[in-house]
């Protein structure tokens, strides 16, 4: 199928970024939010891009409503960062047409990477159409399955957890650990800089979710939990492993 009209339903600032991205590539983009009656708009959509806040109940409502109003062949996509695609798909009558499109902004060059998330029911065709759509927009996309933190932040969260353990057990300082990872292996950032960038709360949430699914080896280091309790979440709170002015 060809996608021409995209309806973006969201409350977050991110929705204007999405609008820019898709409008620039020549798509007809309709903006909507939860305060609007988007039933009529939905009836024209080839693709719905949901970007409301991370609340499963809200998201399920949006999907139910879009499912009722959108043309039968339309794809319904969520930008959620949580492993909810399968669950969201289940409230619709077209679970094979529900997909996750999670956008991660590169902290260095501000370009996006999209992780196309396949839920249990998502069809190959839906994945393929999504991939082609993103190619047209000029965004790099990778295909993945549902896992906490998806692939990017799952890797980073695991590294952060080990680094935090090394720091709490006094093997090395935060600064030396970050410095060595950057200069000895050419990492773009050290683990603690990553933690502060992604958010310590997000790291803990991913680790907790991983430990529920895959076992206790993912349990977050106690220091990370304490930092969340203290409100030291990273750059967004001006304090994490480092202090930001």
């Amino acid at each position: 199928m060809r996608i021409r009209t995209i309806i973006i339903i969201g409350e977050t600032e991110f929705k204007t970024k999405l609008q820019e991205l898709f409008s620039k590539a020549g798509f007809k983009v309709i903006m909507s939010d939860l305060n609007q009656d988007y039933d009529k708009q939905a009836s024209e959509a080839d693709l719905v891009l949901e970007t409301v806040s991370e609340d499963i109940v809200l998201k399920e409502e949006v999907f139910k409503r879009c499912d009722a109003k959108c043309p039968e062949q339309a794809i319904l996509a969520t930008t959620t960062a949580k492993p909810w695609v399968t669950q969201i798909a289940e409230v619709t009558r077209r679970p094979e047409k529900v997909v996750g499109l999670n956008f991660t902004k590169n902290p260095f060059d501000e370009k996006y990477l999209v992780q196309i998330i396949r839920g249990l029911q998502t069809s190959d065709d839906t994945i393929q159409v999504s991939k082609e759509l993103l190619e047209q927009v000029g965004v790099t996309a990778v295909k993945i399955g549902e896992t906490p933190g998806y692939i990017l932040d799952r890797v980073i969260a695991s590294v952060v957890n080990e680094a935090a353990l090394m720091y709490t057990t006094k093997l090395a300082t935060v600064e030396d650990i970050d410095k060595m990872m950057k200069i000895c292996t050419n990492w773009p950032m050290g683990p603690f800089e990553f933690a502060d960038t992604i958010g310590v709360d997000k790291v803990v949430e991913i680790l907790e979710s991983l430990s529920q699914q895959l076992g206790p080896r993912y349990l977050p280091c106690f220091l990370l939990r304490k930092m969340v309790n203290a409100g030291w979440l990273g750059k967004k709170t001006k304090r994490g492993f480092y202090i930001y002015s």
Binding site: N106, T140, L152
Partner: peptide, 29 residues
């Protein structure tokens, strides 16, 4: 840890090597 977590995801069927490599390079340099 960085290697193992990536390889484990391949073992779990979450993603292929190329997609994992691409994601880490494009999103996080």
């Amino acid at each position: 840890i960085w290697y193992n977590e990536s390889l484990n995801m391949f073992d779990e069927g979450v993603a292929d090597p190329q997609d994992i490599d691409t994601a880490l390079k494009v999103a996080y340099n």
